[in-house]
Design a protein around this nucleic acid. Structure first.
Length: 503
DNA sequence: AAAAAAC
C-alpha cells in the first residue's frame, strides 16, 4: 500500500461536512507510508507498531501539512500518537527558529486537563522521540517546582503541561513560550468543563500568533465548535464515529438496587465475577474514599484516587494499579478521561455520573485497543433520570441486570426493596464476542521519503480569542488572582464570550 | 451537584 492511499482530496474544512472515519477502515496503511523520519519509525517498531489507527491515518498527513486540526475522538483511538508523531516529524524537518538564546526553545506545547493525563502523554512523546535529539518534559502541579525548573531551564523542545503549573513556570521565567510553533489542546471539552478558559487564554496570549493549532475533544458540542472556530485557522475536522466506541466492544449492564446497598453490590460484583482489575467510579471524592475503605475492610485490595489525595498518592495509586498490585481503583472523574490502562476488562459505576457524557468516558476505560470489556453500573430509584439521559445520549437501552446470589448485609439493617434478585439469567448479560485480530506482521518498510520542503503556511487572521479579554468597561479582565468562587461556570462564561463577539 | 486545576 502506498501513500496515495491517503487521499488528501477527502479532507474537508470546518464549514463542510466533517470526515467521519469508520473505525475499521484502511487497515492496511502503514506508518512507513507517511514519510516519517527513520528515527520515528524505529521508535514505532521498537513498540511493535506497524499500522496506524484510523484517526492516526487521517491526522498524521494533515498535521504534516501544517494544517490546524479539530479532532473529535475518544481516547483509546490512538489520538496521542496521531498528533505526537507528526509533531516530532515537523520539529525535525523544520529548522530551530533559534532567535532565542536558548539552544532548545519550546517549540511544541501540549496542554491537558489532568496531571495524570499529562504524564501519560509525556511518556508517549518521550518514547516516540527517543531516537531523535528532541527533548521533552512534563510539568504539572502538586509536585516540587525545582526538578521541573531545572529541566525547563536546561531547554526542551516539547512541553506537556497542565495549565496552572505552566503559567507558574512562565511567571517565574523558567520557560518562555515565545517560540512555540505548535499548540495542542488535548481533551478540550474537559478543559472547558473544568473552568480552564481563563488559563488557556493567558497561555494562548503568550504564544506567537503564527503557529499550528491542534484541538482534540471527545465530544463535539456547539461550545467546542465555537471555540474551535474562534482560535483555529481553517481547520480540518476529523471525527471518529462514536457509536462504535460504546456499542461494539463494551458490554453494558445496569443493576437497580437500594441506595444503601450500592457498596455491597459493588463488592458482590467484584467477588462474583472474580474481577482481577477494575476501576470503580464514584461521583464524589468522599464517596471514593469511603468505598475504597469499605472494600479494603472486606479483604479487597482497593485504593482511592481523587483530587484531594496528594500527587504522590495519586501517582502511586495509578502506578501500582497499572502494575497489577491493586485489584480495585476507586476513582472520581479525575480518572474518567484519557487514562490508558491496558487490558482493563471491566469498569463499575458506583454512582451514575451527573453528566451523561462522563458515562461514555468512564466506560471508555475498558474495551480499549480492540479488546472487549464490561461496564457495570449500580443505581437506585433517584437515579432513573440520569440513566434515561445516558441512554438517550448513547442511543441504546442498557441491559437491566439481575443480581445473582446477592445477600444484603445484615450488619447494617437491610432495607426493604433492596436489590432485585432471584431469576438466573446472568449468562445473557455476557454475550460472547470475538476478538478483533489485528495484523501483526512486521516487514520493515522499504522507503522513508520525507515530505519535501516546509509546509506552506497561510496568512493567519487574528482571532478575537487571542486578543486581551475585555468584555466591557465595568467588568474587570479575568485575573488569575480572582478567587475561584467568583469565576463563572465555564459553560456560562464561554457562552458569554462567544455570544458577545462578532464572527 | 461535583469534579479538576497553582502556590
Amino acid at each position: 500500500m502506498d501513500a496515495g492511499h491517503i487521499d488528501q482530496s477527502h479532507t474537508k474544512t470546518m464549514s463542510e461536512t466533517p470526515i467521519i472515519i469508520e473505525p475499521d477502515s484502511a487497515p492496511s496503511v502503514r506508518f512507513a507510508d507517511f514519510g516519517l523520519a527513520p528515527e520515528i519509525l524505529r521508535a514505532l517498531s521498537d513498540q511493535g507498531y506497524v499500522h496506524p489507527t484510523p484517526i492516526q491515518a487521517q491526522a498524521i498527513p494533515i498535521v504534516l501539512q501544517g494544517r490546524d486540526v479539530m479532532g473529535a475522538a475518544q481516547t483509546g483511538t490512538g489520538k496521542t500518537a496521531g498528533f505526537s508523531l507528526p509533531i516530532i516529524q515537523l520539529l525535525l524537518q523544520h529548522a530551530n527558529p533559534s532567535m532565542s538564546p536558548a539552544r532548545h526553545p519550546v517549540r511544541a506545547l501540549i496542554l491537558t486537563p489532568t496531571r495524570e493525563l499529562a504524564v501519560q502523554v509525556a511518556e508517549n512523546v518521550k518514547a516516540y522521540a527517543r531516537h531523535t535529539p528532541l527533548r521533552s518534559t512534563v510539568v504539572f502541579g502538586g509536585m516540587d517546582m525545582k526538578p521541573q525548573t531545572v529541566i525547563l531551564r536546561g531547554g526542551v523542545e516539547i512541553v506537556i503541561a497542565t495549565p496552572g503549573r505552566l503559567l507558574d513556570h512562565v511567571e517565574q521565567k523558567n520557560v518562555s513560550l515565545g517560540q512555540v510553533q505548535i499548540l495542542v489542546m488535548d481533551e478540550a471539552d474537559r478543559m472547558l468543563d473544568m473552568g480552564f478558559l481563563p488559563d488557556l487564554q493567558r497561555i494562548i496570549n503568550m504564544l506567537p500568533k503564527q503557529r499550528q493549532n491542534l484541538m482534540f475533544s471527545a465530544t463535539f458540542s456547539q461550545e467546542i465548535k465555537k471555540l474551535a472556530n474562534s482560535f483555529l485557522t481553517d481547520p480540518v475536522t476529523i471525527e471518529v464515529a462514536r457509536s462504535n466506541a460504546t456499542a461494539d466492544k463494551v458490554t453494558q449492564v445496569v443493576y437497580k438496587v437500594d441506595e444503601d446497598a450500592k457498596r455491597d453490590v459493588v463488592q458482590h460484583l467484584i467477588r462474583q465475577r472474580e474481577l482481577k482489575q477494575v476501576i470503580v467510579f464514584s461521583n464524589t471524592k468522599i464517596g471514593a474514599s469511603r468505598l475504597s475503605r469499605h472494600l479494603e475492610q472486606s479483604g479487597i485490595n482497593a485504593v482511592a484516587i481523587h483530587g484531594d489525595k496528594t500527587q504522590q498518592e495519586r501517582m502511586a495509586a495509578l502506578e501500582s494499579f497499572k502494575k497489577g498490585e491493586i485489584e480495585v481503583l476507586v476513582a472520581t472523574d479525575v480518572a474518567a478521561r484519557g487514562l490508558d490502562i491496558t487490558d482493563l476488562p471491566c469498569v463499575i459505576n458506583f454512582d451514575l455520573p451527573y453528566n451523561a457524557e462522563d458515562y461514555v468516558h468512564r466506560i471508555g476505560r475498558t474495551g480499549r485497543a480492540g479488546a472487549s470489556g464490561d461496564a457495570l453500573s449500580v443505581y437506585s430509584d433517584k437515579d432513573e433520570r440520569l440513566l434515561a439521559d445516558i441512554e438517550k445520549l448513547i442511543k441504546q437501552t442498557i441491559t437491566r441486570g439481575e443480581l445473582q446470589g446477592f445477600v444484603p448485609s445484615s450488619s447494617r439493617g437491610s432495607r426493604e426493596g433492596a436489590p432485585e434478585r432471584g431469576s438466573r439469567r446472568s449468562d445473557s448479560e455476557r454475550p460472547s464476542r470475538s476478538r478483533g485480530d489485528s495484523d501483526s506482521s512486521s516487514r520493515s518498510a522499504e522507503r522513508y521519503s520525507r515530505p519535501s520542503g516546509p509546509s506552506p503556511r497561510r496568512e493567519k487572521v487574528d482571532p478575537w480569542f487571542l486578543k486581551p479579554y475585555e468584555p466591557n468597561a465595568s467588568a474587570p479582565p479575568v485575573r488569575r488572582e480572582t478567587p475561584a468562587s467568583s469565576i463563572k461556570p465555564a459553560k456560562q462564561k464561554l457562552a458569554f464570550l462567544l455570544g458577545g463577539v462578532p464572527k
